[in-house]
Design a protein around this nucleic acid. Structure first.
Ligand SMILES: [Mn+2]
Ligand SMILES: [Mn+2]
Ligand SMILES: [Zn+2]
Ligand SMILES: [Zn+2]
Lengths: 132, 132
DNA sequence: CTTATATTTAGACTAAATCTAAAATAAGAA
DNA sequence: TTCTTATTTTAGATTTAGTCTAAATATAAG
């Protein structure tokens, strides 16, 4: 981990946008929000900044299986729950049992370094008036 | 679920390739293997077939956060473990606690329909002679 | 100030997947 | 069978997310 983090104006602006969002924005969302704030950075710069901030632990990159990366300013360990209908992403603070992970390590011989639980379902507002 | 499944020669060939693979191939891998077997289908046909087979429950589509879909002929509920170094994908039969899911439903109000645990780590053969 | 290193920029490029419109195939009715 | 309709395949264009490149700019070190 790099102790000497260099926050250029571009990186700072990207970080701010993410810290001020709680909807796990994509790179595209972030570029839009930057533009709304008057910042017009090159696409490559935004992607480089996202990589830099992720590599330095200031944000988290989420790959929820949509084919797009999302970014998260919430650094606590948590999982995500996405609504199949409206796409809304909710957070889950419960973590899975450490024993479960140990059992899998024993069984597979892998050294597990990270795990992510991706849950899909129907959110409360989409459940209202559903026909299923 | 559709009870009237129509297996065209193209769909049948794609299904065969997946059933004969245990490495969770991508669409690209599948096209390569089809070519090796003498089949030269249009890209669109292979993608359409994969969608058709997935929608009809004959195969599973996996999105492990690589930006590519993989396909799985193993229809039993299971999770996946990928090596950060060589990319190998292993299967995990342990399932997470149903109570854990119920707790999350109660807390979030979501009706959970599916869940996938994605584990990352270092596989046994990549661990041999590691310097970390 | 001068040189080396790091970063940004615009735009070309890539890879995976989807879309389109025509051609081919299969199914159903007479 | 023949006519008609629905489904599927095909080749190639298009889309989307992201990476790469090389020049320009900014920062740091001597
Ligand atoms: Mn989150
Ligand atoms: Mn599997
Ligand atoms: Zn919803
Ligand atoms: Zn490995």
């Amino acid at each position: 981990m790099n102790t000497n983090i260099r926050l250029t104006p571009q990186r700072k602006a990207v970080l701010e946008v993410i810290k001020n969002s709680n909807d796990h924005p994509t790179a595209g969302d972030i570029i839009e929000r930057l533009a709304r704030d008057g910042y017009h950075f090159a696409y490559g710069t935004v992607y480089n900044s996202l990589k830099y901030l992720t590599d330095n632990g200031l944000i988290r990159e989420l790959k929820l299986g949509e084919g797009v990366s999302r970014y998260d300013g919430n650094l606590h360990d948590h999982h995500h729950l996405q609504c199949k209908i409206c796409g809304k992403i909710d957070e889950v603070d419960h973590d899975i049992s450490p024993q479960w992970l140990k059992d899998i390590e024993k069984e597979t011989g892998f050294a597990i370094e990270s795990h992510q639980v991706m849950l899909k379902g129907i959110c409360p507002s989409c459940r209202e008036g559903d026909s299923g």
